[in-house]
Design a protein around this nucleic acid. Structure first.
Lengths: 217, 217
DNA sequence: TCGATGCATCTTGTATGCATCATGTGTCCG
DNA sequence: CGGACACATGATGCATACAAGATGCATCGA
């Protein structure tokens, strides 16, 4: 995926381990060690150690001194915390955007429309991968519009965690992508109209639907 | 403060370097190396390296491969970003609290009143240290009330950055602590009354005053 | 004089070794 | 039979060694 080489060992350890956590190869509750990963990737423990520290900071691992690294399991309360934070950050971006000059709003709305076109095409083509990527792009575009690096970075970490939650998602039928798309469109419509209040309500609806599909209520 | 020893080398490297950045001993723009810190603290580069990575994640250092670590200077845009994020998180906590059962609100309001008592005493005694600590405690108590570990952790990092900004604060006369205290009291009053809207307005006033005292406008 | 080149130096990136700590187990004693 | 202790095992924490990249400077040539 990422050119096998050309990256530092630290980066390889980080990306590999992270993707294995996010895609479920390393299930929550597993206890892994630096040595295991180092052997697997044919490197020493040093870069693996640094990757572990970073993953702990992101909330994906929990390090136990002299014991090992626990892949943290997604708990219902974590789902709540992530979704609450997402709503806060994305909602803020929407509000800020509606208060910005109409020109700026139009630019972002245009970008969002473009993303939605891609997402629609992906849905029609049944390309789940592309659909998910468009979904990610949609929300990131919203958050980026706030021009706040701190919030943007937080949001990136939230998206990662969300990814892992979706693995155990209950509702996976073809009906859900369609609903997601509709909800996205509704948000953009309110945004284009400059109605911050309505945009936030629709965002809440969207995230509530996400929660339902993840935790089932 | 923290017993000289009893902590891991990694922790010592982290705390020492961080505090030296926060209190201005290491001014923004400085380029430091792992070796320097390691020598100073009489340890090897390994734990220092881990501390540097953590500090980079917190936005206090910027690492340049094979070059060194740059102590990032506070920029006006960073001040804006931090204050915007603070307002978002604290404001959210206030709103959430006002929507919570009155019982919960009363508990938090009580805690805040207690903190304000301490802060008042510190002001009267002219104890800047205690005053700053009470200030920190005040805001943390607000954010804690939202019961969201993700937002709380973000907030902790925001407070650290804020600390460093206050170093270059223009307005430092005895008039400012008094104003801070008054603003805090105003927020708690609105909160106790369950008026979320008003509480948020007063929070904004408070943070605006902070910005003025830092960037001067 | 000015620019290019090669070298000395400094710093990080990674590997490896060792000490320490936590844990599980087998044995011995009650 | 049950519990405590000593030890084997395995993991991390840290120190140290080495390789490779980046920079600055002196030198050399045009």
């Amino acid at each position: 995926m990422t050119g096998i080489s050309g990256l530092s060992a630290k980066e390889r350890a980080y990306r590999d381990t992270k993707s294995r956590i996010l895609d479920g190869s390393l299930p929550g509750g597993d206890l892994i060690t630096e040595g295991q990963v180092a052997d697997t990737l044919a490197m020493s423990r040093t870069p693996v150690r640094e990757a572990f520290l970073r993953l702990e900071a992101e909330g994906l691992l929990r390090l136990f001194p002299k014991r090992g690294a626990l892949v943290v399991a997604v708990s219902p309360s974590e789902v709540e915390a992530v979704l609450e934070a997402r709503e806060l950050v994305e909602g803020h971006a929407l509000t800020k955007l509606c208060a910005a000059p109409e020109e700026d709003r139009a630019v972002v709305a245009g970008a969002l429309h473009a993303v939605l076109d891609i997402q629609r095409a992906a849905l029609a083509a049944g390309d789940e991968q592309a659909f998910a990527e468009a979904d990610r792009r949609f929300h990131i575009t919203v958050v980026e519009s706030a021009h706040n690096p701190i919030l943007l970075e937080l949001y990136a970490s939230l998206r990662d965690r969300q990814l892992r939650m979706n693995l155990g998602s209950l509702e996976k039928g073809p009906t859900r992508p369609r609903a997601i798309l509709t909800q996205h469109e509704a948000i953009v419509d309110a945004l284009a109209a400059g109605d911050a209040e309505e945009a936030r309500v629709r965002l809440r609806v969207h995230l509530d639907a996400t929660r339902v599909s993840v935790v089932g209520r």
